[in-house]
């Protein structure tokens, strides 16, 4: 119920931001549309905590800039590798065990890894095993240190109290 309400608020918010026309007719159409979509999605069974983790905490807000910085750093690194004529790459597959308790946390980690160029998650299973393709050995070692994993777990820890594993 709470999830449905959150979704409704988010959808209507998006409608208002996107529409830019605030005649009574359009706003009411918007409200009706959002309501209809929420109902439909509820029938489809895709309204839950997992789909819309709205309860952002300050820890999440601190994670995003860190991730952005990581992405920028690895982008520069990758650009350097690609542009240098020798292309110093040594692709490898590594496995790592994630410490997140929920699927959502795991997916956050996996997507963060993929989002960072030069590492791509190839497999992710609910028990927390990730297979990652890394472009070079030092990148792989960096990832294996588990900095990202720890940070995601910390973010997750702050919201984990309010959600149970839906897997």
């Amino acid at each position: 119920m709470k999830a449905a309400f959150n979704l409704l608020v988010a959808l209507f918010g998006m409608w208002l931001l996107w529409s830019g026309h605030y005649t009574p007719l359009l706003v009411s159409i918007g409200l009706v549309s959002c309501l209809g979509v929420v109902l439909l999605c509820q029938r489809m069974g895709i309204v839950d905590r997992e789909a819309l983790p709205l309860d952002l905490t300050w820890r999440t807000l601190r994670y995003i800039p860190w991730l952005a910085l990581e992405v920028v750093k690895s982008n520069l690194d990758l650009a350097r590798r690609v542009l240098s004529p020798r292309m110093p790459i040594s692709p490898q597959l590594i496995e790592l065990q994630a410490t997140q308790k929920t699927d959502l946390g795991l997916v956050t980690l996996a997507n963060s890894i993929t989002l960072t160029p030069s590492t791509v998650t190839i497999e992710a299973t609910s028990d927390g095993r990730l297979v990652v393709h890394a472009l070079a050995s030092d990148i792989a070692e960096d990832l294996l240190k588990g900095e990202m994993d720890r940070r995601v777990t910390r973010v997750e820890g702050s919201v984990a109290g309010t959600m149970e594993n839906t897997a």
Partner: peptide, 15 residues
């Protein structure tokens, strides 16, 4: 190879 090209594609997706 394909897997390393995925990395290449993700540069443009992000940066």
């Amino acid at each position: 190879d394909f897997y390393s090209r995925v990395h290449g594609a993700s540069i443009s997706d992000t940066m």
